[in-house]
């Protein structure tokens, strides 16, 4: 049943122009930034050659592209996640899903995974962009892998949070602003955390992403992201169940 919901979410996403425009714009921005970094690398290449243990193309070009991607996706995921439940509620179509023989867990998982497949396409586009560098050089595949994993995990966190906020309201716009607000809040914590080395920096999503960005696959970061995702998915399920119970 999850597959039916995933199929429905993806077809709804791709019959609207939003998804296509977004994919095109994201790719344009990343490709532009990628070229700027490539240009900068070519300029300093001769100086880098003189330094022992100098950073390679992966560190100079790909890591910054992924760092930018994390921030761009932080801004864009709320726009994609806002419709998931809020629009269904506003158009009264949630009734259809709930009166069908589909469990609420399946509905929530299907919606989450549907969005994740779309975002995985975005991540894969960036990976393809990076792999194109192999034409002229050698890539640090380990660093690329850790970046890909990190970006995938943080976007999954963004989606899970966005899905939960979307379950709270019947207005997609409010859902978008709400989840953007919370995600920006989590980013600001990151800025605070970089100054004071306290416990608070464990909460920030982008702080954890930075480890992946540097090539460090930390179990703590993976555990944090997984916990974050599971927590918000469970909260969404509880919220939808509560609606049935409390009206």
């Amino acid at each position: 049943m999850v597959v039916t919901i995933i199929r429905k979410e993806l077809s709804m996403l791709f019959i609207s122009p939003l998804a296509w425009i977004m994919l095109a714009l994201i790719q344009l921005v990343f490709a532009g930034f990628f070229l700027v970094r490539l240009d900068a690398f070519l300029e300093i290449q001769s100086q880098l050659l003189q330094v022992i243990n100098s950073p390679g193309i992966t560190e100079v070009i790909i890591s910054p592209v992924f760092a930018l991607a994390a921030i761009v996706l932080l801004m864009l995921t709320p726009i994609l996640s806002m419709r998931l439940l809020a629009e269904e509620r506003r158009n009264r179509t949630l009734t259809l899903l709930i009166s069908s023989p589909v469990s609420i867990t399946d509905i929530v998982l299907g919606k989450f995974l549907g969005l994740m497949i779309f975002l995985a396409v975005v991540v894969m586009l960036i990976v393809t962009l990076s792999i194109s560098l192999r034409i002229g050089g050698v890539l640090d595949l380990g660093l690329l892998l850790s970046n890909t994993l990190g970006l995938f995990l943080v976007t999954a966190c963004f989606s899970a949070l966005g899905l939960y906020v979307s379950s709270l309201t019947a207005q997609p716009a409010i859902a978008a602003i709400g989840s953007l607000g919370v995600l920006l809040g989590l980013w600001v914590i990151d800025l605070v955390a970089s100054e004071t080395e306290g416990w608070i920096h464990y909460i920030s999503l982008l702080k954890h992403f930075r480890y992946f960005n540097q090539g460090l696959i930390d179990t703590l970061s993976i555990a944090y992201c997984v916990l974050f995702i599971v927590t918000f998915l469970v909260l969404t399920i509880r919220r939808l169940n509560g609606e049935r119970l409390h009206g």
């Binding site: 049943m1 039916t4 199929r7 429905k8 077809s11 709804m12 019959i15 609207s16 158009n91 009264r92 179509t93 949630l94 009734t95 259809l96 899903l97 009166s99 069908s100 023989p101 589909v102």
Partner: peptide, 28 residues
């Protein structure tokens, strides 16, 4: 069970065929 609420639960972006096939799939 088949249920038609007060406001029909329709996805306006879908064609009639797409929508009815989705409902059929949801009902296994």
């Amino acid at each position: 069970l088949g249920f038609l609420p007060e406001v029909p639960p329709l996805y306006f972006d879908m064609t009639v065929d797409e929508y009815l096939l989705l409902v059929a799939r949801l009902h296994r």
